[in-house]
């Protein structure tokens, strides 16, 4: 009889097991809840912005000049100015960052000097943008005599994005299996031949994605350009694609948003929100294309 009852209760839930299962369920739902909560701010931000911006959103808003002291009209000069700043800053920081990352990942041995470089990169990434701004003001505007200009502002942004480009490029390079490099070295390939033949073709998607994601940072930062080259207002020919010269000052979306939100009284209420939508839309568009590029390159990836 005793044997039978033992067999009957075998593998059934004990009190302790039931408690563990409850704890497991609580843990799982708590983690899931927090993960889902991540979506809420994004949706809320976009929905709220769209709702408030609706009266001003139109193609004319994008391509027209601001009117009546920026209380009406469009944001074309700011939009173009942001494109200028982003393109020039990345044109400077991407090559430097990628080449530096290749050195650090493919050539550098673990010496004190290379540790120093690593430390510098990490610390540069941690410098607040307002400090970059101050440095840009001193170094590019005054010392290098670029003046308040697109060049000075772009270079400041370039220095700000550089460490992140280095970090993301290194990550992309490190994801190429070591076995590929060993295969090359063991038929007598030099490091550079190995990089050309194997490392770069297999990491280019990650490298490009990392660079493109810096567009959003360069486009969004206000402090570094405020001190070095962005202005409240700059009259340009509406509709022209290259209205600025490099030594000019320019308008920029982030700066414009700050200006219309805080510096000008009686602005039409929807204008700051519409400006934010354009800024956000530009950045999202770039990010989506980065993801698209990544998917496309990954499908072409050769292992």
């Amino acid at each position: 009889m005793a044997v039978v009852s033992l067999a009957a209760t075998r593998f059934t839930k004990t009190a302790l097991a039931a408690r563990k299962e409850r704890a497991e369920a609580v843990a799982k739902w708590a983690f899931f809840g927090m993960a889902v909560a991540m979506i809420i701010p994004l949706v809320a931000i976009i929905a709220y912005l769209l709702y408030r911006a609706a009266p001003s959103l139109s193609l004319e808003f994008l391509v027209e000049m601001p009117r009546r002291g920026m209380r009406e009209g469009g944001i074309w000069p700011a939009f173009i100015g942001t494109l200028y700043l982003v393109v020039i800053s990345l044109a400077v920081s991407a090559p430097i960052g990628v080449l530096a990352a290749i050195y650090l990942n493919e050539y550098a041995r673990d010496t004190w000097f290379n540790r120093l470089i690593n430390l510098a990169v990490i610390n540069l990434a941690g410098v607040p943008s307002i400090v970059h701004a101050l440095f840009g003001l001193g170094a590019f505007v005054y010392a290098a005599k670029f003046g308040y200009s697109i060049v000075a502002a772009s270079l400041t942004l370039a220095i700000m994005t550089l460490p992140v480009i280095i970090a993301s490029t290194r990550e992309a390079l490190a994801s190429v299996p070591m076995a590929f490099r060993e295969a090359c070295w063991n038929v007598g390939a030099t490091r550079w031949q190995t990089i050309k033949a194997v490392v770069l073709p297999n990491s280019i998607s990650g490298i490009l994605t990392g660079v493109i994601l810096q567009v959003s940072r360069a486009a969004g930062e206000t402090a570094p350009i405020m001190f070095t080259g962005a202005v409240f207002f700059k009259a340009i020919q509406p509709g022209t694609v290259f209205p600025y010269r490099l030594q000019d000052q320019c308008m920029a979306l982030s700066m414009h948003l700050y200006t219309v939100s805080t510096q000008i009284p009686n602005v039409k209420e929807s204008i700051p929100y519409a400006t934010a939508i354009v800024l956000l839309g530009t950045v999202l568009l770039v990010n989506v294309s980065a993801i698209g590029l990544r998917v496309w390159l990954r499908n072409r990836k050769r292992w």
């Binding site: 076995a179 295969a183 194997v198």
Partner: peptide
């Protein structure tokens, strides 16, 4: 090598 390492070409 231990694990075959043909290049991805």
């Amino acid at each position: 090598f231990q694990r075959p390492n043909p290049l991805p070409i």
